[in-house]
């Protein structure tokens, strides 16, 4: 199929992009890598009046170090994440989770920031951004604001980014002494995660001092499993990890759909959490 007609703008600066968005009105849409948007356009599930392409804004392709964090520009592709030396050094969890995203061709075009802005709860990286404590730099007509990942995802395919705003960069604290793992469960290699679990722990004398657990596709937004995180603190045995993992679905409302039932998702989340955390010992 062929997308419906739209106007196209290729700004070369963020300010210009924001200007185009403001002038184009509510039905304008930003395109970065386009790997989620273009299939939606082809199926005519989306019909934007104007597409504002961030591809021509050179500064958005940068990854830079900023103190204890890395700042990843909106046009940094998954493939760039995988080969970027700074990200490999400081954010190994992001690298290993990105390896599970879609396929090689999609990773060449799709962007880290785009997959967050798309706010698909079945996407792998929103949950990873949550546990990494990322924050989003959003620019709009009234200037720049920084939104922590915990406040960024509003609902299914909805983030706090307003129609006239652009997510320009993601600021991700370096992992430091935290180690992380992403466990993804899909039915076929191309499939969306039925459930995914992003786990990070900081160890102290062999036991887990602190833990963060993020969940993919366990609700209408990516979630933190706070009960499990608390129960993992101090866990020093397989049994303790297992008991903590068993609580991972508390408070979640996963969907019942073609991919799997809510019950099964809750069960899987527990198994995957246990495996993810156990792999970090």
């Amino acid at each position: 199929m062929i997308p419906p007609s739209f106007d196209y703008a290729a700004p070369t600066t963020v300010d210009e992009a924001v200007g185009v968005l403001r002038d184009a009105g509510e039905d304008a849409k930003v395109i970065a890598g386009g790997q989620s948007l273009i299939p939606l356009l082809r199926l005519r599930f989306a019909a934007p009046s104007t597409l504002v392409d961030l591809g021509g804004i050179a500064e958005l392709r940068q990854v830079r170090e900023d103190g204890d964090a890395l700042v990843i520009g909106a046009m940094v592709t998954h493939a760039s994440v995988l080969r970027d030396p700074l990200i490999n050094e400081h954010l190994p969890l992001l690298v290993s989770a990105t390896e599970t995203v879609a396929d090689r061709q999609v990773r060449h075009r799709g962007t880290f920031a785009g997959s967050l802005a798309h706010a698909d709860p079945a996407g792998d990286l929103p949950a990873v951004a949550l546990v990494l404590g990322a924050s989003m730099e959003v620019v709009g007509p009234s200037g720049r604001r920084v939104v922590p990942a915990s406040e960024f995802f509003v609902d299914y395919l909805t983030s706090v980014v307003a129609p006239d705003e652009v997510l320009v960069a993601v600021r991700v604290p370096k992992q430091g002494s935290w180690v992380g793992a992403y466990e993804k469960f899909n039915r076929v290699a191309q499939g969306w995660a039925l459930v995914g679990v992003a786990a990070m722990v900081r160890r102290d004398n062999g036991s887990i001092a602190e833990a963060r657990v993020g969940l993919t596709n366990m609700g209408s937004t990516p979630l933190r499993a706070t009960a499990t995180e608390q129960a993992l603190a101090g866990a020093d045995s397989r049994e303790a990890i297992g008991a903590a993992a068993a609580r991972v679905a508390e408070g979640t409302r996963p969907s019942d759909d073609l991919l799997g039932s809510a019950d099964y998702r809750r069960h899987l989340a527990g198994v995957l959490t246990r495996r993810a955390v156990a792999s970090l010992s």
């Binding site: 290729a10 790997q35 493939a79 061709q105 075009r109």
Partner: peptide
């Protein structure tokens, strides 16, 4: 529909040409 397409740095890589607009 996979073809090789150069990225912004001129490096050719595999992309799905059904998920790229000609203007891109």
């Amino acid at each position: 529909c996979t073809v090789l397409m150069s990225d912004a740095d001129g490096h050719q890589q595999g992309v799905k040409s059904c998920a790229v607009l000609a203007v891109q």
